[in-house]
């Protein structure tokens, strides 16, 4: 079999990647992804162009659309920051969705059962959300650092557990009137800050802090060193395990904070409606932003646009499809800029 099948294609690394090549490759792959998306919609009998233009119109001109776009941008980008922090040290925390749900549960506990003096209560919500998000990441993080249990699998499993925990609380102890799976309204909620939705403001502050820590402080250097080469960092005497553990926990905590904003700003109560696949959206945004803070912030806007648009046409699955396609396009584009595909003729190997 090996002698008969030969693929006459070779992938060769490029020494110099020109800026022009990057532009051309990225534009074509992204366009191909969007065209594929439209073609799929067309084949399914949806009018893709009018859906897209509706989404564009809705998100950028209708007041409700803009408001929703900005707050979704904030929430998604906070999760994306969590993804970025763990992915940069090559910890694949895929459980952001679960940690986000845990954070929302924490916020709900603070809002419903803790003293309700508005600023104090909001702080408690944030704190409890952050802690619960970290707690949800704690077991996989510990197992990963101590005995290197595959973190991808353990965090994915905990996503499902988090959804079941949420259902348990909403159908059981926290259920609303007539057993409806919805808590009562939070007495204290996050609102607008200076005309902007609070999740977005929080996101901008968090991204600024992350940037400063990563690129302006000494611990940021250690962090990036561990991300680039764990073995070298460990040989230099840095406590690599501690760095990995902290990054894992912080990324979980940030997802929890996003959950706090979804429950306390977007909805004002806890319901199964908070499960909207934001965890995967954050992952997509972080990868599209090439794991750099500034670009990730803008990639999150791009992803949020698709999410809000998909909800506005009542097809939430469209958001998933767009995220997946964009991720694939982006990954292939990154590879295609760095490699050249050579088709070989004749028997020259």
């Amino acid at each position: 079999m090996q002698r008969s099948i030969r693929i006459p294609v070779r992938v060769e690394p490029l020494v110099n990647v020109t800026f022009r090549r990057k532009i051309v490759v990225f534009t074509t792959t992204y366009l191909l992804a969007i065209l594929g998306f439209l073609l799929f919609l067309y084949l399914k009998g949806y009018d893709g162009i009018s859906i897209l233009s509706h989404i564009l119109f809705y998100t950028f001109t209708v007041g409700e659309g803009i408001r929703s776009l900005l707050s979704t941008w904030g929430i998604v980008s906070i999760i994306a920051l969590g993804a970025l922090i763990s992915f940069k040290v090559r910890v694949w925390n895929i459980g952001l969705e679960g940690q986000y749900i845990a954070g929302a549960i924490g916020a709900t506990y603070a809002a419903l059962f803790m003293p309700c003096i508005s600023p104090l209560n909001l702080t408690l919500q944030l704190l409890l959300g952050f802690i619960l998000g970290m707690l949800w990441a704690f077991v996989p993080a510990l197992l990963y650092v101590l005995i290197s249990v595959n973190e991808v699998l353990s965090t994915i499993m905990l996503n499902y557990v988090a959804v079941h925990l949420l259902e348990y609380l909403l159908y059981g102890p926290w259920s609303g009137t007539y057993g409806f799976p919805q808590t009562r309204l939070f007495p204290a909620r996050f609102g607008q800050v200076g005309g902007l939705p609070s999740p977005l403001v929080a996101a901008i502050i968090l991204f600024f802090i992350a940037y400063v820590v990563m690129y302006r402080l000494r611990i940021g250097l250690v962090y990036r060193f561990v991300g680039e080469n764990r073995n070298a960092a460990s040989l230099q005497g840095y406590n690599v395990k501690l760095v990995l553990l902290l990054c894992f926990l912080i990324s979980g905590g940030l997802a929890g904070v996003a959950g706090v904003f979804e429950a306390s700003y977007e909805l004002g109560y806890l319901s199964p409606g908070i499960v909207r696949g934001y965890g995967f959206a954050g992952i997509a945004a972080a990868v599209l932003g090439r794991l750099e803070p500034l670009t990730t912030l803008f990639a999150s806007l791009f992803i949020a646009f698709f999410l809000v648009g998909a909800y506005s046409v009542h097809l939430p699955a469209l958001g998933f499809l767009a995220e997946g396609l964009l991720l694939i396009a982006h990954l292939s584009a990154e590879a295609l800029t760095r490699y050249k595909i050579v088709i070989m003729r004749g028997g020259v190997y």
Binding site: L318, F320, G324, L327, L331
Partner: peptide
């Protein structure tokens, strides 16, 4: 990425 796209 392919799992997310597949689910959607």
């Amino acid at each position: 990425a392919l799992s997310i796209a597949g689910l959607g």
